[in-house]
Design a protein around this nucleic acid. Structure first.
Lengths: 222, 222
DNA sequence: GAGTTTATTTTGAATAATCAAAAAACATAA
DNA sequence: TTATGTTTTTTGATTATTCAAAATAAACTC
């Protein structure tokens, strides 16, 4: 029925809508994030729409139909559960699991994902802190998260989520101990140099760009 | 580089050579076991041969080149390790894992398979009793196995291997407790009705066709 | 508003994998 | 050796996915 390619398109549309808060995704955006040419996306999106999975309006962009969103959510669930699995059961590195999951999500059957989920006690978040949709597609609300980039100096917080980043950025954050669950404290925040200085749980402090910090969500506390 | 399809062709050629003891596999045979039309196989095998992975002789059949065999063995290793994993770690049923592994073998990376292997303590056999090739392609010799169909009445044996069977046959054998590792005893053997009567470890006895028994290998002992 | 830039769509073409059906080669039997 | 049957190969087509480059549309600038 839905090919891996179609699954990828639907998932990506869903992710972009989620991430950018927009309803319709322009072709160029999709093309870039799927690493295919714009022409390919136009063609593909049109055919996905004709199949009733998406809702394409020429020159405006593409959204998801109810069925399309169902498929997308199934893929997101799979992706995130597989990531959990690779980290928790196979002990793989936080930063390397994304690429693996990108492939595996199309290969694991319903049975297999659900058994993985059960084995891990049905986790609610993946290793990056992203919520895992339930089998019926429902998803826990994000709670009161706030971008790390907007935290005032002196405030302490717990990392809730680290958005998709280039591999080396994730490795760096990992080295600094900045992962979902870790407690941190903002030391200084310099909007001019666009650098945020943060102290990790181990007491060591490090700097990171406000841009990077913007893709880290935290719960401010204490 | 090698597509899942090519991987399947190579693995299947390897399996048929192994199973039938022949060196070259005729097109019809391959077509049947891959569930594609004969014409497709001819075309495909020719192109795989041109790529240097197989050795195709028109009207005689196809064999594997050294590189082709390397790829095939890698796939066999993956397949069998994934089967182990599904049974041992995810607790899936003996009989249902083959189909899953058929898909997953193309999706797991080197890293992932090797971590699975390590997690299970590098098993030497899959749940059906088939030997798992080492990463370098070497494989433990079969030992002194003998088809169950040729065991004399009264002899007792340990099941070493159950060859690929239709799902319902595997389910039946599983119900009877006839799996790799189980001890059994041959009660009667009737070449006329082509039925073998076997007593399982639980003391219950059951009949199975000599044909089915031929695909069960055992180690005869005391 | 005329010209330029950017985004999107269309067009024409390529590749991988497949099929059905016709043709060819080989095998078997009478 | 002629007829019959079986395998294999060839041929012609189809589907899904992709690309590059040309054409078009919209947005932006001056």
């Amino acid at each position: 029925m839905t090919s891996p390619t179609v699954e990828d398109y639907l998932k990506q549309i869903w992710m972009l809508r989620e991430g950018l808060g927009r309803d319709r995704i322009p072709m160029g955006e999709l093309a870039r994030s799927l690493s295919v040419s714009p022409g390919t996306v136009t063609t593909m999106v049109k055919s996905i729409s004709e199949a009733g999975l998406a809702d394409y309006v020429p020159r405006l962009g593409v959204g998801l139909s109810f069925e399309g969103e169902t498929v997308a959510l199934r893929m997101v669930r799979r992706h995130r559960l597989v990531e959990c699995f690779l980290v928790e059961v196979l002990g793989m590195d936080w930063a390397e699991v994304h690429a693996e999951a990108e492939v595996l999500e199309h290969a694991v059957s319903e049975t297999v994902v659900e058994r993985m989920a059960a084995l891990m006690g049905h986790p609610a978040h993946d290793p990056h802190g992203n919520p895992i949709p339930a089998p019926d597609g429902s998803m826990a609300g994000a709670g009161s998260l706030q971008p790390l980039s907007e935290c005032a100096p002196g405030s302490s917080a717990v990392v809730a989520r680290v958005r998709q980043q280039p591999r080396e950025v994730l490795d760096f954050l990992s080295d600094c101990g900045l992962k979902p669950g870790s407690g941190i404290e903002v030391v200084t925040r310099n909007p001019a140099s666009r650098i945020l200085e943060v102290r990790g749980g181990d007491g060591k402090s490090f700097g990171l760009s406000l841009e990077t910090a913007a893709s880290v969500d935290v719960v401010v506390g204490g």
